[in-house]
């Protein structure tokens, strides 16, 4: 029964997925590759800043390269998070638009908090 649905669908949609449809799959991979390096940099930086106090943390964020890398890390992290959490929503609650919307709002909110913090620290 399921097979016949798949055949109907692929016969109808084949031309579409031939041109696109790999976009999200590729985005998952490229964000993974970027985050592999960015999170290792973040772990290394966290090691350096551990127990060094507020002034050291502020000085770290005020370095333009660090601020830029932090911002990039958060943009890519929340994009990756959005796709990952959406995979969970689609697997366990396939028809819930509400959860997909909440996921988007959550990821945008965390990104806004991080970028806002970087901006305030960098400007101060």
């Amino acid at each position: 029964m399921v097979d016949s649905y798949l055949k109907q669908r692929s016969a109808k949609d084949w031309k579409k997925s031939e041109k696109h449809g790999a976009g999200e799959w590729l985005a998952e991979r490229w964000t993974s590759v970027a985050l592999f390096f960015l999170t290792l940099w973040a772990a290394w930086s966290a090691f350096g800043l551990a127990n060094q106090g507020y002034e050291a943390a502020l000085a770290f964020v005020k370095v333009p390269l660090n601020a830029g890398l932090l911002a990039a890390t958060f943009v890519i992290t929340m994009w990756h998070t959005y796709m990952g959490l959406n995979a969970n929503v689609l697997d366990y609650f396939p028809n819930s638009r509400v959860l997909r919307l909440l996921n988007l709002l959550f990821c945008v909110a965390v990104l806004a908090v991080a970028l806002g913090g970087i901006y305030l620290a960098f400007k101060a």
């Binding site: 958060f74 992290t77 965390v110 913090g117 970087i118 305030l120 620290a121």
Partner: peptide
């Protein structure tokens, strides 16, 4: 990610006064 975002916000709010 939430914890690190909170850390950045804490630095920003402290530094900006």
């Amino acid at each position: 990610a939430v914890m690190v975002a909170a850390w950045l916000l804490a630095i920003g709010l402290t530094a900006s006064g």
